[in-house]
Design a protein around this nucleic acid. Structure first.
Lengths: 295, 295
DNA sequence: TCTCTAGGCTCAGATTTACTATGCCTAGCT
DNA sequence: AGCTAGGCATAGTAAATCTGAGCCTAGAGA
């Protein structure tokens, strides 16, 4: 038995630290990085500090209102990002190799329920051998890093525009009968989504007639847009409809648009596709989804 | 306060698992991977298993005498290796950016002490602003992954040959007086290094005269070659000298070579240099080391 | 000027992850 | 038959990572 008493090998920095730093640097803040990594900002701060301790240099300049990359940080970021992109790509290759017929879609909860879900049966029928799973997320994932193949979110760029986002009030037919003019809105509950609270404002601004609705619209607020839609269908009030999300209900007549005025938002429903090689099932699915868009 | 009760985001595989798999796949065995990663083979086995569980597919075929990559494993390995190479490169960039004048050399303990160490004072004098650190390792590190800039080990390829490896007996002058012929070796202790035990055999084989030395040479065995050299200098016996490692002592006369027969091994002292961009100090150091080699 | 808010820091404790140690098993050698 | 190399499984342990709470600073708004 040979006892080799050698000093501990110098080790590279923990990968976790590198990941935290990369995310913080790329997104420009610990809080944003924490969001992407699904941890608390404190955890990111600790990891970054650990990395700074490892290399003995500050990677960020701390200001009270946020952090800015230091000179060294700027130098180092590109190669690190490249490395993590390569890692994401490798994981993607692994997923493709182990489950070629599996496609994982991420979408805004409302989009998943009101836009994607109604289309899935037809898609599943057309692509019988593809296993489609859907995860609802509040914010679009980083497709280069996280294990999703597609994303469907509202946004302005970074993908293929599937539908414009037009907004206009919608309600159940019996509620519509009470609404002759825009001023009548003051007499019915105005439903609102928790994150799309300014929809009413946006639609009303530029209206010919000044309407007395207070900016934060009075009326129930829902954390899930799909829930608000459901309530509107049940006659609970008037909701600002997003064209892509209420189209089905307009067709079926469950909802009607009492006013003709429509406002097109600068953003739209955007389909994001994972970079790198695409499996045949994924290609087929993307084509199906795109063919839905009539722009 | 919005309570968003969303299902847990699907997460990618733990990076540690990927690293363990990559090493095991590249080196063709859990034990070898464990060596490179400085953990026990059991740890590697666990990580690999975790990864296989994550993707639901076996990455290795287990045979009792080792493992072989499965089809999927073969498909996945290249992109993973590329990712970890990119990660190593990123760490290297980080080290260069944070400590431009620092060079880290790894070498076999014997090489570090007997070849490198005597040269360092002159090098430090010539390159005053370079901070050189040396780590002794039993096996050459993976320069693309571990935080070393240079390696000096005995080997056959993978780098620049600095010196051939000639072996021949050496001893203190007073011991040499007892050695007229090769047969006299039977009458003195034959020192040996723990890992280079077959040096004697190699040197003796092909000798004109058959010598009665048993294959595992009788005599003290040292776990550190430098220690054996020290003992030889002190007159404890005859040691098989490696040209690069005993040159200084031969010059000073502390050791002499009692026999003229020399055997050149197929391997040699090889200088490994980290890939990627080289800092000016590193370039200068490499040039100095190479200029030592008179081949 | 005061307060509020966003973003970051730190520390202690909890939790999760990773590793070691041990014993067992198999196939190929000698 | 006995030995060795390499892998597997399990339990306990060590280390890494995360959370949670309270504190701090600078800018924005009243």
């Amino acid at each position: 038995m040979i006892m080799s008493v050698l000093p501990p090998r110098p080790k590279g920095p923990p990968i976790t630290s590198l990941r935290a730093f990369e995310a913080a640097a790329r997104l420009g803040g610990f809080t944003r990085a924490a969001d992407e990594l699904c941890v608390t900002p404190g955890a990111v701060a600790q990891q970054v500090k650990a990395l700074e301790a490892w290399c003995g240099v500050d990677l960020f300049e701390r200001h009270a209102q946020g952090v800015r990359l230091s000179r060294v940080g700027v130098e180092v970021l590109p190669s690190l990002s490249a490395a993590f992109d390569a890692m994401g790509e490798a994981v993607s290759v692994l997923r493709r190799a182990t489950a070629p017929g599996r496609v994982h879609i991420s979408a805004l909860p409302a989009v998943a329920q009101l836009w994607l879900s109604p289309r899935l049966p037809a898609i599943r029928a057309a692509l019988a051998d593809v296993e489609i799973s859907v995860t609802a997320l509040e914010a679009p994932p980083n497709l280069a890093r996280e294990p999703f193949d597609l994303s469907v979110f509202y946004g302005e760029g970074d993908g293929r525009l599937i539908a414009r986002d037009e907004i206009f009030p919608v309600c159940a037919p019996e509620v519509a009968r009470q609404l002759q003019s825009i001023e009548d809105l003051a007499n019915v509950p105005c439903l609102a989504d928790a994150v799309w609270t300014q929809d009413w404002e946006t639609w009303l601004s530029g209206c010919a007639t000044q309407v007395p609705l207070p900016a934060p619209v009075r009326g129930p607020v829902y954390s899930l847009y799909a829930l608000a839609v459901e309530e509107a269908v049940n006659g609970a009030g008037v909701l600002i409809g997003h064209s892509a999300l209420v189209a089905r209900h307009l067709e079926s007549g469950a909802l009607v648009a009492p006013f003709s005025r429509r406002v097109t938002l600068p953003r739209g429903l955007v389909l994001g596709v994972r970079g790198g090689e695409m499996s045949p099932p994924l290609t087929a699915l993307v084509n199906l989804l795109i063919s839905e868009s009539r722009l």
